[in-house]
Structure formats: C-alpha cells, structure tokens
C-alpha cells in the first residue's frame, strides 16, 4: 500500500459512471445527520490530537458542547419532527449511558443511529488493531442494546482514522462510511472483506464548518444549503445525487440559528423529486443496485484508458 494515496477507491469521473436511479424517480437522496455527542471534561491524552483547545477543564468549550444535549437537541428534534424529516444520528454512543432520554426520543421517531465512536474526546489515532476492534465492538453493542438497531454507518470521532480502519469496519458488518469527501454520489470502498460504501456526508454543508470556520451567519448558511440543493437537483435528472446536511445541536439548536435552517429544509421538501431518507437507506439501495456496476465500470476505465506500452 502506497502511503501517498488512500487506496480506498477507484477513479470514477463524474461524466463516466453508471447512472443512479433513486426510488420513485427522485433526483436527490436527501438526508440530515445530527451529531449527538458527548465530550468529556477530563479526557485522557492522545499524543496525536488534543481533545480540547484550552487546558482541562476547558469550561467554555465543554459547556458549549453540553448545550447541545441539555437544550439544542430537543429544539432540533421537535423542529425536524414537525417538518417530517427523520434524522440519521451520528452518535457518540456514550450518550446512550449518560443521556438515555435523548436516545429514547430518537428511537421513538424512527431515526437511524449510526456510529460516531464512544466519546468525541476519544480517537482511534494510535490505537492498535486489537484496541480498535474492541472499540468498534463496544459501539456496535451499545447501539444495539439501546435501540435494537444494527450499526450500518460510521463517522469517526473527529474524522480520524487508521489505515486499517475501513477494513475493520467492513469486517464488522458496517455498510457505509461518512469519512470520505471525494464525491456527491455513493462509491464503493475497497476493503479486504465485505461491501463498504462511502455515502456523501459533506464538510461544506456541515454547520461546524459553516459557523465556526467559515464564520457564516445563520441566514447565509440557509442560502448555502438551498444553493447546494438547487445544483444537485438539476444534475440529478441525469443521475441521482446525494445531499447531506450534517448538524450539531450545540450550534444549530441555538435559538438564533434554527429558523434559517428550517426554512432551507422546507424549501428542499417542497420539491417533488426528492427522496427524504437516511444514510442507511441510501447505503442499502446503492449496495444492492449499483455497487457492482461501479466496480465493473472503474475496471473497464482502467483497462480502456491504460497508458500505452
């Protein structure tokens, strides 16, 4: 394996790949992924990444994240319910232990729970394969016990990976990863066993990036979401696209931020060729209908465009 490239997927250009048809002729598979997280006040150190910006206890940042669970998430869940949009929850599974009330609410509303690790302050960086295996089993077992759901999706805490992570996920029956940002459509991920897909999750549409890095206003964020959707909806006539809005209740659940998001979601919902769905449903549809075609097409491209000699 070359260290210079991920080696996880083939080159499949936008203009030469099998066309995707979503259920009922939808042009865009649209999903909303709230990150429900727990950050520890005193996490153990990991030499590759600090959990907090300030020295422990980082009260400013801890309390900001805690806001998501105490207040923001409830406001967000109610608003999404009102709109009839299910969430696919990127879950730090320790929330099942700390705040089971939140999990019960999500399960009641038939939301998907997928893995975002155990705590957002524990990373797989520097874990051995054996340690990471224990970590993955913990996540899968915790979600199953709390909800009866099988873990299909995986977003690593802080999008941190080891070179073997995707293999371990596939081996443990995970069907999609959200850690790859290389496409607007699902793609096969090359693993030793199993059939793992990447599902577009998006950093660009992510409220963390929009608010804390790009420093956008809530109304600007709403406009970005609509613009992203308009383009994908137009392109989706040829081949079905995926659009994800990843959310964090500690940001979007603040009173001054919720309304512009809801307006954008309502706008998206008002289009008739939209599949309002979940990460799991997209992954299963893709795996069952297009995974093999995409692999075969990439192979054909490699052969037909092989350099001379």
């Amino acid at each position: 394996m070359k260290r210079s490239e991920p080696g996880l997927y083939d080159y499949l250009p936008l203009t030469s790949r099998p066309a995707i048809r979503w259920p009922n002729g939808a042009r865009v598979a649209f999903w909303v992924a709230p990150n429900i997280e727990f950050y520890e006040l005193h996490p153990p150190p990991n030499m590759s990444k600090n959990a907090w910006v300030r020295p422990n206890p980082d009260v400013l940042n801890y309390s900001w994240r805690d806001y998501g669970n105490r207040a923001g998430v409830w406001r967000m869940i109610d608003a999404m319910k009102e709109l009839g949009i299910r969430g696919s929850v990127s879950l730090n599974v320790a929330v099942c232990d700390h705040h089971p009330e939140i999990i019960r609410r999500c399960v009641e509303l038939d939301w998907e729970l997928f893995s975002h690790g155990i705590y957002n302050t524990r990373f797989v960086l520097n874990m051995s394969i054996e340690q990471e295996q224990i970590f993955i089993r913990d996540v899968i077992d915790t979600i199953y016990q709390a909800s009866g759901q099988k873990v299909d999706g995986w977003l690593s805490p802080s999008v941190s990976n080891n070179p073997w992570t995707m293999d371990l996920l596939a081996e443990n029956g995970v069907t999609y990863t959200c850690d790859l940002f290389h496409d607007d459509q699902p793609m096969p991920v090359r693993t030793e066993t199993g059939r793992l897909c990447s599902i577009p999750y998006s950093l660009e549409m992510n409220d963390v990036i929009a608010y804390t890095r790009a420093m956008k206003t809530p109304r600007e964020y709403g406009r970005m979401i609509k613009a992203q959707f308009d383009q994908l909806y137009a392109e989706g006539e040829e081949s079905g696209m995926v659009m994800c809005v990843p959310l964090h209740p500690y940001l979007i659940g603040q009173p001054h931020r919720l309304e512009p998001l809801l307006e954008a979601l309502d706008y998206i919902k008002s289009h008739d060729k939209v599949w309002l769905t979940t990460g799991r449903e997209i992954a299963h549809w893709y795996r069952d209908h297009y995974y093999d075609d995409a692999v075969a097409h990439a192979k054909m491209l490699r052969t037909s465009h092989a350099p001379a000699g």
């Binding site: 990991n46 520097n126 051995s128 340690q131």
Partner: peptide, 10 residues
C-alpha cells in the same frame, strides 16, 4: 507508541 489500554476504559 501505542495507547495504554486505559484509553479504552471510561
């Protein structure tokens, strides 16, 4: 250096 196993204790 690998992480100590305590990193997986909560």
């Amino acid at each position: 250096m690998p992480l100590p196993d305590e990193y997986l204790v909560y």
